[in-house]
Amino acid sequence: MTDADAVLSALRPVLDGLAATFGGNCEVVLHDYRRPEGSVVAVAGEVTGRAPGGSMSELGLSLLKQGRDARDQINYLTRTPAGRVIKASTMLLRDRDGEVFGALCVNLDVTDLRHAAVLLGELAAVTALPDATTTFTNDVGQLIRAVVAEEELKLGRPVSRMTRAERLDLFRALDERGLFALQKAVPEVAAALGISRASAYNHLAEIRS
């Protein structure tokens, strides 16, 4: 058993206790980033619909891409596709060499608290909570399509109307987010963009050269 396996095994029993401490609106997820397509090792509670064997999120991909420079992400806000507001913390797990191999994530549904904050805002001078989005899914294909759609939206035009330079910028953005670390990411990206696999592989090779 490796050190990483030992840490993951030791943390499994902790999940239920953490979820119970925060109540029914809390979910705790244990990730093994060595398997990005199925990084979810264990889940306690139910907030985002995560399940063992599910893929990692965009944030996880980004942190994995950063390597040793990655830092814990504490108390950030995001939204589920259903519109629920989630306060989340992602605490990285590292081996003895400092390499990131996983994460312990705590997701707390604060939607009802947000509604209360809006109602009390005028009295308490509360600033509106910022909006953010992420994709909580157990399907790596859905994750890839969501990231592609987000980056395509940032560029402001569909791939069919992009110049070659803009298409390369799109691939560069996807690579910087760690998307191509996933198995079969290139075919999935090609399908999402409506281009051939050969073109996708050529674009990836060009930006990395």
Rank of each mutant, 00 (worst) to 15 (best):
A192S: 09
A192R: 04
I207E: 03
S62L: 04
R172W: 00
S57W: 03
L153A: 14
E188D: 15
R12L: 06
E206I: 09
Q183V: 02
R79Y: 12
L179K: 05
A10K: 10
T90K: 02
G141R: 10
S160N: 08
A124Q: 04
E27T: 05
Q66W: 02
F22W: 13
R94C: 06
V43K: 06
L143I: 02
I144L: 10
T133P: 00
R34T: 04
E151G: 02
M1C: 11
A181L: 07
V186W: 00
V14S: 11
I144A: 05
A192M: 07
E152N: 06
R208S: 09
E122P: 05
I74N: 14
S199V: 07
N138E: 10
V186H: 00
L179R: 03
D139R: 08
L168I: 07
A51K: 13
A185I: 05
L11Q: 02
V40T: 10
G98W: 08
G83M: 12
V41A: 01
P130I: 13
A19H: 07
D131P: 05
D112N: 11
A42L: 09
A205K: 15
S57I: 04
N25A: 12
L204C: 07
L113I: 12
G102T: 04
G60D: 03
D5S: 12
E188W: 08
A70F: 00
K184D: 13
D139W: 06
M91C: 12
L93K: 09
R12D: 03
A132S: 15
L193C: 15
L11F: 02
S199A: 14
Y201K: 06
V148N: 04
V147R: 05
V7A: 08
I207N: 03
T111S: 15
E152W: 00
A149W: 14
L104Q: 06
G194F: 06
I207Y: 04
S55N: 12
T90A: 10
F180M: 03
A4V: 00
R161K: 12
A19I: 07
H115T: 08
A149M: 10
L63Q: 06
M91L: 11
G17N: 09
G23S: 11
A19R: 05
V118F: 13
Q66S: 10
K87N: 13
R145C: 09
A165W: 04
R172Q: 10
R94I: 06
M162A: 13
D131K: 05
Y76M: 12
R96T: 09
A185T: 05
V47R: 01
D32E: 08
K154R: 15
G156M: 14
G53K: 08
V85Y: 11
D3K: 01
A103T: 02
D69Q: 14
S209F: 13
Q183A: 12
D131M: 06
